[in-house]
Simulated scan of single mutants.
Amino acid sequence: MPSPEARRIRTVFAMNPVHLPRLFPPRLMERLRRTADVDPGVVVRDPTGAAGTAVAGRLAGAEVLITGWGCPHLGAWAAAAAPRLRAVLHAAGSVRALVGEELWERGVAVSSAAAANALPVAEYTLGMILLTGKDAFALRERFRATGAPLSPADTAGVGNHGRRVGVIGASRVGRRLLELLRPFDFEVLLHDPYVSDAEAAGLGAAPLALEELLRRSDIVTLHAPDLPETRRLLDGPRLALIRDGGVLINTSRGALVDHDALTRELVSGRLRAVLDVTEPEPLPAGSPLHTLPNVFLTPHIAGSLGNELERLGLTVVEELERLAAGLPPDHLVRRADLARVA
């Protein structure tokens, strides 16, 4: 924590201002302003409207941009408008589409709160794994329709004892999920081409090729980044490898799945799915996935929402305090990593 006498870092917010109160509630904003010379009333959202405004004046002296959802792409305009800029602290996840070549070339440090955002996604996924293992959604619908108690035959295939969970992608979310799965009585499988067998074992998972993981898993959960090589990663033939009655959970990106092929599998009743992301998003009103009893569809809620946003703001405040102390950001994003991370 910098001393009260330390020079505050000239900082500008760049995001949709509607997010500011939850990212930085009063006590956290007060802590931020002990390190940052920042005006919460001046927020960059439209770079074309910055010239001749208070925003342009603030940008001219800005050393740090605190960005978030609704921030414009930080391309040539940002490099020109903020010649003293030395860091972008992103109070959200991916910076892939946010930071332009001009800032990378200039050596601007880029930090992301992706690690903080990974926790609620992993928590959501864990909850869904446990609930689908108990077949909670289908049994709830049955109970709602009939009111009849369950017989042993109704629950013969239900339970989480020894259930095989296949995790695709040891991303930040994937790794947090692997941590959360440790106390439970699951057999955990992992596919990630960048993770060695020894590292997978250290994460508590058995490494497998993708096709073998799909064949062996009761529940498959996606945590890979959306890259050209991962688009339609789960196509029709691969979805067909998942056992009858298996579950697919997607909290990553809809583009990782061939949704026409998935829809066919779900309409047939062969698979079940928990989908927090889809392609397109949202789905058309006429999509059968809205009403299928074997589909649990949520509106992209796994990531940080409500009071969870403060965790992202706290990450940014801590990063700024590190900069003020002469230290590098703790959650630095390296340009070279963008080829394989979200």
Rank of each mutant, 00 (worst) to 15 (best):
A201P: 11
L239Y: 02
H73P: 10
R84V: 00
R334E: 13
L262D: 14
M128N: 13
R140A: 12
V167M: 12
L312P: 14
D39C: 05
H290A: 11
A116P: 13
P284H: 07
A87E: 07
L119A: 07
G313D: 12
E265P: 03
S252Y: 04
A206P: 00
F296K: 00
A302V: 04
S196Y: 11
T48H: 14
I242Q: 09
D226I: 03
L126C: 03
S196H: 12
P40Y: 10
A205R: 06
L323A: 07
A92V: 09
H90A: 12
R144Y: 02
L65N: 08
T48I: 05
P282I: 01
L180Y: 13
A255D: 13
M29H: 04
E321D: 10
E63W: 10
A302M: 04
R144L: 12
I301S: 12
G49T: 10
R335N: 06
R175G: 08
A118W: 07
A56S: 11
V173N: 03
R182N: 09
L256M: 02
R86A: 08
V277T: 13
A205P: 06
R172F: 11
G174P: 06
L222Y: 07
R45H: 11
V267F: 07
T155K: 05
R238K: 06
L262G: 10
A79I: 01
L28A: 02
S171H: 14
A224V: 00
A76D: 15
A62Y: 14
L283Y: 09
R216M: 00
R45Y: 11
R231I: 09
F143I: 00
P40R: 05
G57C: 06
L297N: 09
A81T: 09
I301Q: 08
R270P: 01
V12Q: 09
R8G: 08
S112V: 03
L312M: 12
F24L: 11
F296Q: 08
L314Q: 10
D185C: 12
T48D: 15
P152I: 00
G269T: 04
A92D: 06
S268H: 08
P25N: 03
L233D: 05
S94W: 10
A109Q: 11
E101P: 00
G93R: 02
R10H: 15
G313E: 01
V121I: 15
G107N: 11
R215F: 02
L74N: 02
G61D: 15
T132N: 08
R142S: 12
V88D: 13
R176K: 12
D135E: 13
D258F: 13
T291H: 15
A79D: 03
L32C: 01
V99W: 07
A302E: 07
A80E: 15
A342V: 06
R264Y: 03
G162K: 03
P299L: 04
L139W: 02
R264T: 11
T67F: 09
R144H: 12
H300S: 07
R335D: 01
L131Q: 14
D330H: 10
L292G: 09
A138S: 15
P193V: 03
P2N: 06
V18E: 11
I168L: 15
L130A: 10
P329K: 01
A76G: 14
T67G: 04
G93D: 04
I9T: 14
L214M: 05
L248D: 14
P228H: 03
G313K: 06
I219N: 10
A36V: 08
R238P: 07
R270S: 06
A273N: 05
V220H: 07
